[in-house]
Design a protein around this nucleic acid. Structure first.
Lengths: 334, 334
DNA sequence: CTGAAAGCGCTTACAG
DNA sequence: CTGAAAGCGCTTACAG
């Protein structure tokens, strides 16, 4: 069972002729140890190749130094960068990140939350929608949690997100400014994280511009390219059809581009399209995609910082909702 | 320190009027427990919301049920899918995956290996190049290891990879078949994992086809789009310039496309281009990219299976090198 | 079918 | 500046 017995603190103590207590203290620096003893212990450790047992430490400290990252769909290029930002932010503080992908399905998310809790992670970054069941579990567990994308049902926890209403309004504003009136939207799941807010931003922008309510056209996708394609197809079936579409993310916008092309419609002349995220692919498709850039690396880094802060200050720290600045990237599709 | 004391096995035992031993055994099913006792304990557990302490279990079992995934660059769309495949493969067996990204830099990889080992993961999936230092550490530690991409210096460990020489030869064959003679390559770092083999496949295909050695044109990139762009630029400076290029991955191929376009050269007429991987972007760029498809989800899944197998059978199992089947995807760039 | 007790490898009050 | 010993929450031979 223990194939490569790595030496224990006890072995080191014996070899160095001191107590385990002392060895522990040269490790933790929690109480002074005389120079000579310390040097002695240190060299013994090096010679024996001592490595403190992580489980033993975690057990007595009741702290895992692990963060769970739960993402909707790692395949969406938005998330890898977020993950990188998170990892960088927490690695320095000695934390490790545990990955849970595929939270697009509700059961996967519940499973992820459960497993993360079982593993006793110190914190969770939740970049996915979560059922009431999981939400309740999270509250009860009392883990540090940073929600990515504002989520009203988890408002009691720290969060990082773009200013979703504002960004949608900005995108729609761009379209209105170009003279469009028949501006549709392909929304994300309305009950879910940023989906609802972006939809609201869209509605509000039209209303503020005095566009007639009957020109409000909403189709719903699931954040994927295929979902966007289907939604666009349904929008194009309406008559009169929209002349512009605000898509709640780039992947769906690319799908919308596919659907338009399939009907012989060309952007931007027949149909203007705007996405959100600015994933690499946005610059790669032809016509290239006008979009709202959201800096996902920074979002990940911020989520990490929020967690570290809370872990340092305990439950005492005030809840923070951080908004990350977006920006418009104008390309060919508008 | 222990804010939400979750009940311990001891508390459960007391509440159920049995010994810790028995509680432990209804949990592990390692020895029979009478129906009545078992039911009793189970309901008490449910009532108290008992959750076994992972650290305590890991400490006494000396097993973490965690796998480290070390990737070169999570931002390359090839890796998220690999990660998903891995997670799916190992999750069922109760393993969790710890993510280490950014192993493009040597120090990051060494760090990742070190931290993974400290955390006492049961296995590591290594999808990155590794220094001799790290290789030595890995050997000494005796962890289960699955290498992604054949790596001669780690030949003693299980591996999964595409048949890199063969796939390169197939791609080059496609170009030669179309009548090209001046076929260049943009290789990955030659010392690194699949880079060297794909380069060899390229050379071998040209040699076998009787192409004059002086038509062998090699530029080296770093697997990124920018690297591919620079490499292509250098190839286009030669005269006579190549009429076709085999790029060792899609990201570099897309960069090559950029460089060609910047000089007013159009694929496939002025220059034929083939990539490797078949990431989503390959179908998105214009002209769309002909490429060799490598099923990364399956590679991840296989890496997981190799690890599980080794963890089950211990060091005893024979070392396996699995080759995953590739396929040619013909699009517009050739 | 069930328990008492030692052990996993650390940390940390307590004592000197 | 240093140690002996209890404790963290499990598992598992040993005994009955």
């Amino acid at each position: 069972m223990h194939p490569r017995q790595s030496p224990t603190i006890d072995a080191v103590a014996r070899a160095a002729g001191v107590s385990k207590t002392t060895v522990s203290h040269v490790l933790s620096r929690k109480r002074p140890v005389s120079q000579t003893t310390r040097n002695n212990v240190l060299t013994v450790m090096a010679e024996m190749g001592f490595e403190p047992n992580y489980f033993a430490q975690a057990l007595s400290a009741d702290r895992s130094f692990a963060i769970a990252l739960i993402v909707q769909d790692l395949t969406n290029p938005y998330y890898p960068l977020l993950g990188r930002g998170l990892e960088r932010a927490v690695a320095e503080a000695g934390y490790v990140v545990m990955l849970f992908d595929g939270a697009a399905q509700a059961e996967a998310t519940e499973m992820a939350v459960r497993v993360a809790l079982q593993r006793r992670v110190d914190g969770i970054v939740l970049a996915a929608t979560v059922s009431e069941v999981s939400a309740a579990e999270l509250r009860r567990a009392g883990v540090a949690l940073a929600v990515v994308g504002s989520n009203p049902t988890l408002a009691e926890f720290d969060s990082v997100s773009a200013d979703d209403e504002r960004l949608a309004a900005d995108a729609v504003g761009l379209l209105l400014g170009a003279g469009h009136r028949r501006v549709a939207t392909i929304a994300g799941p309305a009950n879910a994280n940023p989906g609802g807010r972006r939809l609201r931003g869209y509605r509000e922008a039209l209303r503020a511009a005095g566009v007639s309510p009957e020109l409000v056209m909403v189709a719903t996708g699931d954040w994927t390219r295929e979902g966007g394609e289907a939604a666009m197809a349904s929008l194009l079936d309406r008559s009169p059809r929209p002349t512009a579409v605000f898509c709640a993310n780039d992947l769906m916008a690319i799908g919308a581009l596919d659907a338009a092309l399939a009907r012989g419609l060309r952007a931007p002349d027949d149909l203007a399209i705007v996405g959100v995220d600015d994933i690499d692919a946005a610059g790669l498709v032809r016509p290239s995609l006008t979009t709202v850039r959201i800096p996902s690396l920074e979002i990940g880094r911020t989520a990490g910082a929020l967690l570290l802060n809370r872990l340092a200050h305990g439950g005492g720290a005030a809840v923070r909702h951080v908004l990350i600045q977006h920006s418009l990237v104008i390309r060919q599709s508008t």
